[in-house]
Amino acid sequence: MTKKQPIHQQMAHQVIRIQPTKGFSALGLAELWEYRDLLWFNILKNIKSKYRQMALGPLWIILQPVMNMVIFSFVFGKMAKLDDGGIPYPLLTFSALIPWTFFQNSCTFACNSLVTQMPVISKVYFPRMIIPLADALAWLVDFTVTFAVLLIVMVCYGIYPNLRILAIPLYLLLTLVTTMAVGLWTASLTVKFRDVRLVVQYGLRVFMYVTPVAYTAANLEKALPDGWEWLLKMNPLYWVIEGFRWALLGGANGPELFMVYPIILIIAMLISGAYMFRRTERTIVDLL
């Protein structure tokens, strides 16, 4: 008991005031940092529980993007014979599918996370933002594994990565920011309106086709009336996917000054999403 005294005294100054909040409250990032161990164990839990007691286990990580790669290469490469810009079609789609699959899975999970974690939320307090964050971050394991597979496939095709690969972490960061922006908004809305789940599910499917995942950006732009390309380019994932191709395979759109607009847009969305989330968090138990 005596040993712990200093900690107690140090904490005795802490005063929590519980009262109705009007409007928006602070983001509470310091508190989020206080609970970093919980975030870490939540990520571990998500990873460990996902593949336990499955016959193929981690093999499923690779299966999802590989299946999509095969389908896209067949439909768009072989049947529609779309221009591949000199890159083998499987590599063209696989390199795009790695950030896309991460985005898609993280968003779906983050969106549902508050509803599925209700039993915990209703019994104990912690910064709720940990839940969608842990759900999204757990998919980084899948990202890393599939990325390694991509590198192997590239070598099989005789393409070796150069120094541009160093840009990948920056593109990954942009993917994460986009994921969290969409995840926080949809998670807050799903609590109130359960249909948001379905909107996200169908929305992501549509979104994939306006993002150059299954074909090159040039092909997508050709399909639009002149002067409307900027709309495609306001999508941060457009730059992420083109950036992955540019960094690994070459030949796509690398970083451009125009990127600043979607980046500003998505950061604004992330911040507003975080405030929205904090607002929902306060009475989440009464709503679910």
Binding site: R17, Q19, P20, T21
Partner: peptide, 10 residues
Amino acid sequence: ITEPTTGYAE
């Protein structure tokens, strides 16, 4: 876990 409608607790 949830916020009050009125009053406060310290």
